[in-house]
Amino acid sequence: MKIVVTLDVNGEPRQALADGRDTLLQLVRDQLGLTGTKEGCSNGNCGACTVLLDGEPVCACLVLAAEAQGAHVTTIEGVAVGNALHPVQAALIKFGGTQCGFCTPGVVLSAVALLDRVAVPSDADIRYAIAGNICRCTGYGKIVEAIQAVATSRQEASR
């Protein structure tokens, strides 16, 4: 039995047919073709499939597609504005916070959610916010520096 799921993805109304067992991850990648969201462990440990569900980071592999009925979902494809990268994306490039890139979409969304919620995150806040995003390349130092730099420049801009 297929379910019609109607939801808002990156600010656009979308509709997709999902199986009862399908996850939000499958809906986003296979039905909507938004393959920036990555499948890693499929059990909530790695964070590669992180998307924002009604503004909060979640593992898309742990949400049934049917549960997303009426939800607002932000994927990595939705964070840039036109051709301008989101400041978090730009900072990750500048600071070398991305290597193989597989964890990067999830890291970006976790960081975007943190910066939306906390004006001046501490080093510990940043590390806790990305604790669910496993990165095997960078050692995290450069990712933390990049997120810190975005927070600092945002603070300076608001003065």
Partner: peptide, 9 residues
């Protein structure tokens, strides 16, 4: 319990 992603669910 888990990460923030887990705690949000």
């Amino acid at each position: 319990i888990g990460s923030l992603q887990i705690q949000n669910r």
